[in-house]
Computed example of a mutant assay.
Amino acid sequence: MQNQYKSNNSNGLKVLLLIEHPHYDHDLQNALLTCGYHVYPRLTTCSILKVVDEVIPDVIILDVDKLSNESIHSLVILNQIDPKPMVVFTEFSDQIMIQKLLNSQINAYIVGDKLPHHVGPTIQVAIARFKQVQSLQSELIETKRKLDGRKWIDKAKGILMQHKGLSEDQAYKTLRKMAMDNSQKMDDVAKNIVSVMQAVN
Rank of each mutant, 00 (worst) to 15 (best):
K144P: 14
R145P: 14
I127P: 08
L147E: 15
I153P: 05
V119Y: 03
I153Q: 02
Q162P: 10
Q134D: 11
E139P: 11
V133R: 00
K151P: 14
H163V: 05
Q137R: 05
K151Q: 15
H117C: 09
W152Q: 14
Q162M: 06
T143H: 06
P121T: 08
K131G: 13
Q162N: 13
H163N: 12
H117E: 11
R145M: 04
S138H: 01
S135E: 14
Q137I: 08
H163T: 14
D154L: 00
I123L: 02
D154P: 11
K146M: 05
K151C: 12
L140Y: 04
K157M: 07
M161V: 06
L147H: 13
A128H: 11
L147A: 15
D154A: 11
T122D: 01
A126K: 07
R150F: 06
Q124K: 11
A128R: 11
A126G: 12
V125H: 05
D148Y: 05
K155E: 10
V133L: 08
A156F: 03
Q134A: 09
V125R: 00
L147D: 15
H117N: 14
S138I: 03
K131D: 14
S135D: 12
G158Y: 03
V125L: 03
R150C: 13
D154F: 01
P116E: 00
G149V: 01
S138Q: 10
I123R: 00
A156R: 03
D148Q: 02
G158C: 07
R129Q: 15
L147N: 15
G120Y: 02
A128Y: 05
R129Y: 11
I153N: 00
F130E: 01
G149R: 06
K131V: 10
L115E: 13
L115F: 03
D148S: 13
E139F: 00
A156Y: 06
H118V: 09
S135M: 04
D154K: 06
Q162G: 12
P121M: 05
I153S: 05
L147F: 01
K131I: 06
Q137P: 12
K151D: 15
I159H: 00
R150H: 13
T143G: 04
D148K: 06
D154M: 01
I159M: 04
F130P: 10
I123Q: 04
Q132H: 13
R129E: 15
V119T: 05
S135L: 00
Q124M: 08
E142D: 14
I159E: 01
Q162A: 10
I159Y: 02
A128M: 10
K146L: 07
S138P: 09
E139G: 14
K144L: 05
I153R: 01
L115C: 09
I153H: 02
I127F: 03
A128I: 03
V119Q: 01
